[in-house]
């Protein structure tokens, strides 16, 4: 069994529940943990590490990495997926998917560290973003291919039969009908990106993971919790946005 689920929750009722509850929970988490930290603002460690500017910077870094990953992934995986789904690539595509599946088994922290070491210890935004993008490539690639392959062959035949060119069929029929799949893959990739971006601090790219590490190193559980909870809230929010996109950006006739 492949680990492709079109929608990660895999059930209509659960999906609707999450669409409604997730942003609420995320907001509650943010408010809750910040209020909690606020009550302890006398503590010097907390006061120094949990400042508005720190939080904003780290959150922004985290968000930016995820956004960059998303853009890179879409720019590479969707066209690549289109190419691999064409009939002439039929023999190559299982190979590529197989390779990508193996890549997915790799630990994300391992990829980050390897890239870091291979660039001789360079730190920074791209040192985190690139390996995360590679890691997040698979869900979108796989879903693009599956999405295109599941398009009813008789629709392509009908399209060519009434005189649409191959390109027109791809753009007007195949791709629109694959959008739900591609969006689902993108959602998974985004969640992966946010999750892995929590490790970006390993290579000096900041992100909310840094706060978790600071808290851990200082044995201050409040600081740690703020970082962890904010990261969770960000992930829930991004996933929720992805769910909205899945639901509302899909072509009308398919819903």
């Amino acid at each position: 069994m492949s680990n492709t689920f079109t929608s990660d929750s895999g059930s209509g009722g659960a999906e609707r529940l999450r669409l409604f509850a997730q942003p609420v929970v995320a907001a509650a988490l943010v408010v809750g943990v910040l209020a909690f930290a606020y009550t302890q603002r006398d503590n010097v460690i907390i006061a120094r590490n949990v400042t508005a500017s720190t939080l904003l910077t780290l959150t922004w870094q985290h968000f930016l990495i995820s956004l960059a990953v998303a853009v890179i992934v879409v720019a590479i995986a969707v066209p690549l997926g289109v190419l691999l789904s064409r009939s002439w690539a039929r023999r190559v595509s299982p190979l590529v998917i197989g390779l990508a599946n193996i890549g997915q088994a790799a630990p994300s922290v391992g990829l980050l560290v390897l890239f870091f070491l291979l660039t001789n210890g360079t730190t920074g935004f791209w040192i985190a973003t690139l390996p995360i993008a590679v890691y997040a490539l698979l869900p979108v690639l796989r879903n693009t291919i599956v999405g295109l392959q599941q398009v009813d062959r008789s629709l392509i035949d009908a399209g060519r039969g009434i005189g649409m060119s191959g390109a027109k069929v791809l753009l007007s029929v195949e791709l629109p009908l694959s959008v739900p799949f591609i969006l689902a893959g993108l959602r998974t990739a985004l969640v992966l990106a946010v999750g892995t971006a929590s490790l970006a601090w390993f290579v000096g790219a900041g992100g909310l993971g840094e706060l978790i590490d600071t808290g851990y190193k200082l044995s201050n559980w409040t600081v740690l919790s703020v970082g962890a909870v904010l990261a969770m809230a960000l992930a829930l929010l991004v996933d929720w946005l992805g769910g909205l996109a899945e639901r509302y950006l899909s072509p009308r006739g398919l819903r």
Binding site: D152, S154, L155, D157, A158, G159, R160, G161, I162, G163, M164, S165, S172, V173, P176, L177, P251, R252, G253, L254
Partner: peptide, 22 residues
Amino acid sequence: PDKLRREIGYSIQQAGLFPHMT
């Protein structure tokens, strides 16, 4: 071929209507 087919009507068993279009 594409131009040819635009001048020939084509109707198949499954109708082949594009589901995402009205």
